Amino acid sequence: MRVLVTGASGLLGREVARLLVRQGHAVTTFQRRASGVDGAADLRGSVTDEDAVRAAVQGAEGIVHLAAKVSFTGRAAEFHEVNVEGTRRLLRCARAAGVREVVFVSSPSVANSGAAIAGLGAEPADPQRAHGDYSRTKAEAELLALAADSPGFRVGAVRPHIVWGPGDTQLVERVLHRARHHRLPLLDAGAALVDTTYVDNAASAIVAALHRMDHIHGRAVVVTNGEPRPIGELLAGICRAAGVPAPSRAVPGSVARTAGAVVEKLWTWAGRKEEPPMTRFLAEQLSTAHWYDQRETRALLDWTPSVSLDEGLARLGEHYGSPSGAADASRRP
Rank of each mutant, 00 (worst) to 15 (best):
E15W: 04
E15D: 07
E15T: 10
V16N: 01
A17G: 05
L19P: 15
L20S: 04
L20E: 03
L20V: 10
V21C: 05
V21N: 08
R22V: 00
R22F: 04
R22T: 01
Q23S: 09
H25G: 11
H25T: 10
A26W: 10
V27S: 07
T28L: 06
T28C: 07
T28E: 09
T29W: 13
R32V: 08
R33A: 09
R33I: 12
R33P: 09
R33E: 06
R33V: 15
A34G: 14
A34N: 09
A34F: 13
A34S: 11
S35F: 11
G36I: 14
V37A: 01
D38E: 15
D38W: 10
G39L: 14
A40V: 08
A40M: 02
A41G: 14
A41W: 08
A41I: 11
D42W: 10
D42L: 05
L43Q: 09
L43R: 15
R44G: 12
G45S: 09
S46G: 05
S46H: 00
D49M: 05
D49Y: 13
E50C: 05
E50T: 15
D51W: 02
D51I: 03
D51K: 11
A52N: 05
V53H: 03
V53L: 04
R54T: 03
A56G: 06
A56I: 01
A56H: 01
V57D: 08
V57E: 11
E61K: 08
G62M: 00
I63V: 15
V64A: 06
V64T: 02
L66C: 12
L66P: 02
L66H: 03
A67E: 00
A67N: 10
A68L: 08
A68I: 09
K69F: 07
V70N: 07
V70Y: 13
S71P: 13
S71N: 14
T73W: 00
T73H: 15
R75C: 06
A76H: 15
A77D: 14
E81I: 00
V82P: 07
V82I: 12
N83D: 05
N83F: 11
V84S: 02
V84F: 00
V84P: 08
E85C: 03
E85W: 13
T87R: 06
T87H: 04
T87D: 08
R88M: 06
R89G: 02
R89W: 05
L90E: 04
L91Q: 07
C93S: 15
R95A: 04
R95N: 00
R95I: 10
R95K: 09
A97L: 00
A97F: 01
V99G: 15
V99Q: 02
R100E: 09
V102N: 12
V102L: 15
F104L: 10
V105K: 09
S106E: 12
S106W: 07
S106V: 13
S107K: 05
S107C: 02
S107W: 01
P108H: 14
S109N: 06
S109F: 09
V110C: 03
V110R: 10
A111C: 10
N112E: 09
